[in-house]
Design a protein around this nucleic acid. Sequence first.
DNA 1: ACGGTCCAGTAAACCGGTTTGCTAAACCGT
DNA 2: ACGGTTTAGCAAACCGGTTTACTGGACCGT
Lengths: 358, 358
Amino acid sequence: MEQATRRSTIADVARAAGVSKAAVSFAFNTPERLSSDTVARIRGVAAGLDYRPDPVARMLAQGRTGTVGILTPQALDVIFANPYFGEFAAGVATAAEAAGLAVQFISPLHGSLARAVDRASVDGIIAVGLGADHPEIGQIRRSGIPYILVDSTALPDEPAIVVDDEAGARAAAAHLVTLGHRRLLVIGIEPPSAGAAAEPAWVTSRRLRGYRAAAGDAGIAIQEDAVVLGPASMEGGIEAFHQAWAAGQRPTAVLAMSDAMAIGAMRAARELGLRVPADLSVVGFDDLNVAQYTDPPLTTVNQPNRQKGEEAVRLVIDGGTRRNPLEPAQHQFATHLVVRGSTAIVPPLRQEVPDSKA
Amino acid sequence: MEQATRRSTIADVARAAGVSKAAVSFAFNTPERLSSDTVARIRGVAAGLDYRPDPVARMLAQGRTGTVGILTPQALDVIFANPYFGEFAAGVATAAEAAGLAVQFISPLHGSLARAVDRASVDGIIAVGLGADHPEIGQIRRSGIPYILVDSTALPDEPAIVVDDEAGARAAAAHLVTLGHRRLLVIGIEPPSAGAAAEPAWVTSRRLRGYRAAAGDAGIAIQEDAVVLGPASMEGGIEAFHQAWAAGQRPTAVLAMSDAMAIGAMRAARELGLRVPADLSVVGFDDLNVAQYTDPPLTTVNQPNRQKGEEAVRLVIDGGTRRNPLEPAQHQFATHLVVRGSTAIVPPLRQEVPDSKA
DNA sequence: ACGGTCCAGTAAACCGGTTTGCTAAACCGT
DNA sequence: ACGGTTTAGCAAACCGGTTTACTGGACCGT
């Protein structure tokens, strides 16, 4: 019932204008192939019937969809909870619009990412945060659609966009060490699939290596119990800090692997009566836009969020073009520390409740 | 060159399995129509060829795309700059995934929203923030695709999801008045198209009415020069506050129409040496997730951002179903004030530099 | 042995465009 | 008046599936 009047098709227009379907098609796509008055007439008739070429039929005939897909292993609602993704998506959107492409999101459908990939009609796929344990990469490759991985170094031969996580993390930790901090707490991002936590290519592992390297240079060891994981959101940060505190951790500084979590950690710390940065220094990762507006403004590691999105679109548009084995498949962006107000020199030693069993 | 091997089609599978195309189709979609061993054989052959039904062809044949579109009059990169949209989109994504639908974004393509609508292959459209001056509404309606407007009361007969802006704004202003504030500054959202600022249905107009109503109840008038507009982002809030300050405004409280702008305003105020809330109270609008994590936590007007997104999907799936003239086309959600830490009793009168020409 | 149901599978139409190859007419210079 | 080149437009194939109508054989009860 809902379709009051069936949409008019190209055949309707052709009939009404007394021409062939081909002519109608030409009138819109290659008007120079027709006499200008015929074009005008056809267009007139088409407008009268308010004809609009069916995009799906056009896709099928042309073999292109004019769409890029952003693929994420997490559900979209958790994805959107982290502003990091918003900034990345903004970059994708900018470049996509410049190229005349629409943007579609591909996320697990009824729990299955594979199914979602199958249903997706896109010319290219930008896959963010896929680990090596995700078989969908093979699925995508086999499908023949150009794709690019973002934030996954898991498979060094796959085309990917990454950032220098280790260097960034190193700079963050070095900054804290320089300020005199020795009791560090790391708040990391928990992997989508539980098993992958140990994977050395997982972002948390990469950044942790950087933290440990800088700490190690100063003779500090970051123990396993000084590393706590959670989802990359503000809630995740709160939760993680409270959990660490409850477990007896009494850090003077926090290394958070995401700004969202860093913000959460600052919040949690404040709830526990700690002042930032007087009692506790906090360093984030991402340099989200909001990092400038927190109180205090967040010291963090900058990575070019939007730019990564833009570059991803460009590379995926290139498709297989850059199949030059000389240049590396991975495009790496630099990271750098941005010092703001959430870090300060280590507080003088205070009386501490000795709740460790020593 | 990039397509090493052409993707195998249903015809290839049919040939290889020695059956008809129809049989292959049945094997996947209606297996009960075939003997179970035939199904198994076909599936086996298909897997061997790693056949994957072309989603576009399927869409064309079935006449459905399995996709909902989120339409925005602004470019996606500006949209994503406001977390409000992220939360709304998260709601849409949740409901869409539950219904097995993909999500596609529709935003102006090369400056033309109409063009973007034409290219979009979706079963339903969720249009956010479209004003009455947007002719695309007519275009969408004519296309016969189910649609729903969000945040636009412009056209009372169109199906829409709105919130009680006026009541929310009223509560916000009443709160400030109760705290003794009399010098109020309003920071509003500038419309996408310049002309629409005056439109009484534009969100800024609606909320302004609420502010004025509450102020008026207390005998306070909000003058035109105490209303400044900007884009709904943190930068917009900063800019707006500085602009007002430069123009000589010395408010004791700010009514911001978006949390993002409120956060920006707090920031700007702090830069000017004002303490929030001791010297300046700030009330936002939206109750974004981040509003809990700012410092101080933001007093704001809650509206159900995610829920609006979920409801939008539901309504659009219903399509024309609810063409019951009895129930109103507009679905309105309630708003309510959430008092946190950014508002306080008005500060005692202080010495003020008289930079107005009085 | 017979007509009637079921069952498994097929052929072909269909979705709504694009694109290729062709034709008939107009136009060209000589 | 004529062969050669454009020009304008058409018919039909094609993209890759789904779906309808149909068929031949197996199975059924009597």
